[in-house]
């Protein structure tokens, strides 16, 4: 190939100072990234404002307008929280596990959530679900999810036989076992109880209660910021275990820290709005496609904005065009699932 034409570098090299390492392959890619980011911001603001203002019966700027907008603002805020949680968690999780075709939501967070919801209505009836709403209950759900995932990491990621893949699979299987139990309880419910439960089993922005914000927002922001601050370390983690250790980072402890952050984010998002299995996968895959950079400092903002645009755009369109707000999360799931299938079939290596 080109090798034959290479001349001795010591004579022909341009002055070293003019050469820099960019996260982008070419200047054009860098320009494209900026444009992508700008477009995403415009879309995010557009959909966000659209959700607040579109179809608002009051004239823009009047008191009534703001009152209605304030009510809708809650759901926009929820979308922002979910976007930060899902996007940051999935990107970090894929890096920590060195695998771009998996998503943290299969690790049992959602099965646990479903099991808790189902058990509540099974044992306590409809009042059980009511008993599950409230800030302390929210905190408790998050704590249970994070606590159990920490137990799992501590068990399978430490010691001589630590193995990340075994940990993942064990997490998934525990989730599956919980799923069997939930399914069993669900079939014993009366149809009316089951209908009430169904609303909780699908991720929906309207599941979120503004009362949770004082806990959900700080948790989400803290975990996301912590992961962002580790962006450069995450970049190293993409090189794999040996290269990471060679560069002086302790691979195991880095992974543990990242996974802790991931479980905080996933637990917050799941306890807030319910299961969103393939949303994170969808936006992480899109983010890698459109950002043209593998640097986490560039991937994170694109992924979060994409996530917000996908969520708010889907809600906006489903509400104002198809009048079918209820199925938004399922539509997103189906799209995300299809993207997963496409990626799966195009992938040559695991």
């Amino acid at each position: 190939m080109a090798e034959a034409t290479i001349t001795r570098p010591d004579r022909r090299t341009p002055p070293a100072s003019g050469r820099t390492t960019s996260a982008f392959g070419t200047p054009r890619a860098h320009r494209r990234y900026r444009i992508t980011l700008a477009v995403l911001i415009v879309l995010a603001v557009g959909f966000g404002f659209g959700l607040l203002a579109w179809d608002n019966p009051m004239p823009v700027g009047s008191d009534g307008f703001w009152r209605i907008a304030r009510m809708r603002a809650t759901s926009v805020l929820v979308m922002a929280i979910v976007a930060i949680c899902q996007a940051t968690a999935t990107v970090s999780f894929q890096t920590a596990t060195n695998n771009r075709i998996i998503t943290p939501s299969i690790m049992g967070f959602e099965s646990l959530y479903v099991a808790i919801q189902t058990a509540a209505i099974y044992f306590l009836g409809v009042s059980g679900l009511v008993a599950l709403t409230g800030l302390p209950q929210f905190v408790m759900q998050v704590a249970v999810m994070v606590g159990l995932s920490l137990l799992l990491y501590g068990w399978l990621l430490s010691g001589r036989y630590a193995n990340l893949q075994v940990m993942l699979l064990v997490g998934i299987i525990i989730g599956g076992g919980l799923g069997s139990v939930s399914t069993f309880m669900q079939r014993l419910l009366t149809p009316s109880d089951f209908d009430i439960l169904t609303a909780r089993l699908f991720g929906s922005v309207s599941n979120a209660d503004p009362d949770y914000f004082p806990v959900a927002i700080p948790l989400c922001v803290a975990a996301a910021v912590a992961l962002w601050l580790r962006a450069r370390r995450l970049n190293v983690l993409t090189l794999g275990r040996d290269a990471t250790n060679n560069l002086g980072l302790d691979h195991r402890s880095e992974i543990m820290k990242v996974l802790f952050g991931v479980s905080l984010l996933m637990a917050t998002s799941t306890a807030l709005v319910g299961p969103m299995t393939f949303l994170g996968f969808l936006v992480a895959t899109l983010a890698y496609q459109i950002s043209g950079s593998a640097d986490h400092r560039h991937i994170f903002p694109v992924a979060i904005l994409t996530c917000f645009v996908v969520l708010s755009g889907a809600y906006f369109i489903m509400r104002n065009v198809f009048y079918a707000q209820g199925v938004v999360s399922i539509i997103i799931e189906l799209v995300g699932g299809s993207v997963f299938l496409v990626v799966l079939l195009r992938k040559g290596r695991l």
Binding site: T103, G176, T277
Partner: peptide
Amino acid sequence: RVSLKSSLIVPIVGIMFGAVVGSVSTF
């Protein structure tokens, strides 16, 4: 198409694959 057949990633990906189909059924 995959080179690492013996890997534990195969069942992980397979379970996700099942989850996608399961979500279609649910829908």
